[in-house]
Each structure stands twice: as structure tokens, then as C-alpha cells.
Amino acid sequence: MRVALFITCVNDTLFPGTGKAVVSLLRRLGCDVDFPAAQTCCGQMHVNTGYRDEGVRLARHFTEVFAGYDAIVAPSGSCAAMVREQYPKLVQPGSRGAAAVAEVAPKVYDLSEFLLDVLKIDDVGAYFPHRVTYHPTCHSLRSLHLGERPTRLLRNVRGLELIPLGGADECCGFGGTFAVKNPAVSAAMCADKVRNVLDTGAEVLCAADNSCLMHIGGTMKRQRTGVRIMHLAEILAATEER
């Protein structure tokens, strides 16, 4: 199986550790991972902010870069949802690039989907002896319908104590440019999310999207809460002999 890593522009630029973790994890599970170097960005920011033309250009670029792979794995529920759920509407049937979208989009998986649905693995042999709470993130929850997949993986991590997060399904207030366009509401939403995280007493806040984690983590850091943020891939990549 030819597996491509779709790193996403945010992870590429700001969270390379997550990408390294995905590579390490998938290699450990026997996958040969390729990183198509021409990849850039899925175009979500442009489309969701109202710049559809730029978004369509990026979508076409994406489908050209990732054509021919059996599976495309992204450590981001939001970017995976953008490609899989939004591309078919963005690049209208019959228009240029629509055929490539129809071919590529269904092969894009969030990491936890790939592990559970494609590799059929729910115990990745990870070890992480910490108290962790999990924020499911909106697009993972309501666009990709990841459901229990990420927490199933976390429950099988040795040493890990998973603490349920109150109001887990509520948005953290990131929303891409929403955080800048409506900063007051965004901050108010994040304040409630942070309060819920702190109520768990967890050491680590985990999610499958670094954008949301960057938002919640940035607020928690400003407030000196001492709670770390970690992408799901980084916890799953951690082993006893690290």
C-alpha cells in the first residue's frame, strides 16, 4: 500500500513534531510512508474566509500532488474533512479538476481512521504514563464523524489515564480566522473550554488537530496553567523504550 503523509501547512510550519510522530508511528506499524514534497495547503483557510478562487487553486494543486496513492493520512481532522467533505462541493462536477477530486478525496483519512479502519489496529503499542484528557474537535466530530476512534486508541495506551472532558463536544472557539475576526466571542468560548480542561486535573490535553490545540494551548500558556498540549499522534508514537 502506498501511503502518503499529508502533513498540513500548520503542522509543517509550526508543529513538525507531530509529523515526525506520525512517520515514526506508521513505520513502527509496518507502513512505508511517503511525503510528497510538492504538497502545500488544503485551502481551508481561504475557502472558509470567503476566498474561493484561491481555495480552488489549492484544491487542484492538492489533488495533483496526491494522485496515485492508496491512502493519504493527515494528522488533522479539520484538513482531512476539508478535502474529503468540502472538495467535491468546491470543485464542481464537470469543472476542471473534478475527476481528480473524485479520485483523491475519498482516500484521505484522519490518522485515527487510518489506524482503525484501514490498518484495523486499535492498540498501537504505545506507552504514556500520564493523565490525559481528550478534546474531540468539531470537524473530527461532526464532519468526519470520528466518534470513539481516538479515545479507543488512547484507552489502549499503557500507563495512560484518560479523564473525560466536560462539554467535550463544544467548540474551543478557534474556527480559523474566526479567532481573529470575532476575538471576543472566540476568547469567551476558549475560556470555558480551558475551565473544563482544568476541571479534569489532567496533565495533558490531547486532540487530533493542532490548530485547536494551538488555540486552547495558547490560552492555557498565557494563564500559566501548566497543562501541556499534545497531538494524538505524539502520544501514540511514544513507547516505553523512547
Binding site: 468539531c138 470537524h139 461532526r142 478557534f174 474566526f178 472566540s186
Partner: peptide, 11 residues
């Protein structure tokens, strides 16, 4: 149109 984080709970 920007008064939303596009969280999808409404849909």
C-alpha cells in the same frame, strides 16, 4: 456570515 466558528453543531 463570519459570526460562526463553523463548528457544525447547528447543522
Amino acid at each position: 456570515p463570519y459570526a460562526s466558528s463553523l463548528c457544525g453543531a447547528c447543522f
